[in-house]
Amino acid sequence: MISKENWEEFFLGYHIYKCAVASKNHFYFVLLELVEGNDISPRKRLVSIIVEDDDEVISCAEYDSEYFDLARLASVQKPTQQAVMVALDGDVAVMGSGFNGFEDSIPLGKPGLPLETSAHAVASIDGYAYVVGAWRSVCRRSALGQWETLADRSSLPKPEKNKFGRSNQGFKVIAGFSSSDIYAGGGEGDLWHYNGEKWNRCAVPTNMYIETICCGGDGLVYVGLQSGSIMQGRNNKWKLVHKGDMTLPFQDMVWFQDKVWCTSDYGIWTIENGKLTDPLLPAEVRSCSGNLSVNDGVMLLAGMYGATVFDGIKWMPLCSELT
């Protein structure tokens, strides 16, 4: 666990909003300032924690309230090891490899640009940052500060607008086994597969909203739907394996220790053999529910009340408001 002094300096007055694992002893967090009232925008912090033996090295960048609404976070290895934080409006901040601060924003606003309207998710695939957004926008950070669109409109058409000028389709999440085996989805059952050259729509047996995607180590794709429902499959073979009745959908789904782990602010669950189960976990672990990230043989669970790391054998608290 990080020291009480570092907890008070970097975390006190903030809560963990997003997390990402860089390595088994290096972790990134997006923190939101605790504010009262819906009319007050919180400040944000991007924090790096490296824990080695009894020592800890913490870096922190703070951003004013007008920046990084609905920030998303990924840890990438290419073109260099960094945390990449992306805002809804396409603003980008990075931390690591000798740089800490703003990077050129993702170009958006017109057809043909990397993003047409907004950024909804960022994920690391084959070490690079991928971002998806409304109107089936997809882009990749191919170099420092450079984004390229992957939305080839010959195979990935924009969804049709309804009478209100909106659409119930479009991307909210993205995940991949590799750069040539990617799934992106969102909207009402709007799921697509990218083979590195073109996109194909997946024929899924649902019109529920797609909230999360996990590419499992068993070769299957797990799709979290509204109300905690789960769909499992690949390409054009899919089935609904769990009908949920939760208030919140899963916020993150990851593959770790031969199973899928799912979390939201309400708890943490696992999927084994197509069945959603509620694992027996200590209360101090459950209190960290909210976000999940996996890399380098460890899984990080982080939320409103702290963060804990699982190495497959034991849970190790990293930081907590109870420190």
Rank of each mutant, 00 (worst) to 15 (best):
S293P: 05
D55I: 08
S155K: 07
P111F: 08
V84L: 10
S155G: 10
V132C: 14
V294A: 11
L240R: 10
E148Q: 15
I268N: 10
A175T: 00
L32M: 05
L281C: 07
K110D: 13
K161R: 12
S289W: 01
L144R: 15
D252F: 00
Y266F: 03
A129T: 05
Y28A: 13
I16P: 04
G189W: 04
S264I: 00
Y14R: 07
P114H: 09
V35Y: 05
G165N: 07
S154N: 12
V285T: 12
L31K: 10
G189A: 11
A129G: 11
I16L: 11
G176V: 01
N291S: 12
K161C: 03
V84C: 10
S105H: 05
N207V: 04
L108T: 01
S287R: 15
K239R: 15
H15L: 05
L70P: 00
S97L: 08
W192V: 02
D91Y: 01
D265R: 14
G13N: 15
D296W: 03
P249V: 02
R45E: 09
C214F: 04
V122S: 09
A151D: 12
Y14W: 03
G290K: 08
L281F: 05
A184Q: 03
F27T: 01
Q169W: 03
A74E: 02
A83S: 12
K243R: 15
L248S: 13
L73S: 08
L225D: 05
N162G: 11
G186N: 07
A93D: 03
V294E: 13
S287E: 13
L88V: 00
L322N: 14
I2V: 13
H120S: 14
A129N: 10
G224R: 09
I49G: 14
A123Y: 06
D265F: 02
R136K: 11
S180K: 14
S227G: 02
G228H: 06
V132L: 11
N195R: 05
P249Y: 05
D152K: 12
V47C: 11
K275P: 00
L300I: 01
H193D: 04
L280A: 15
Q251V: 00
V92M: 09
C319P: 00
V173W: 06
Q146D: 10
M316H: 13
S124H: 07
V173Q: 13
L150G: 08
G244T: 01
G133C: 05
S118I: 01
D39Q: 12
V51I: 14
S289E: 03
S48V: 00
G165F: 07
M304Y: 11
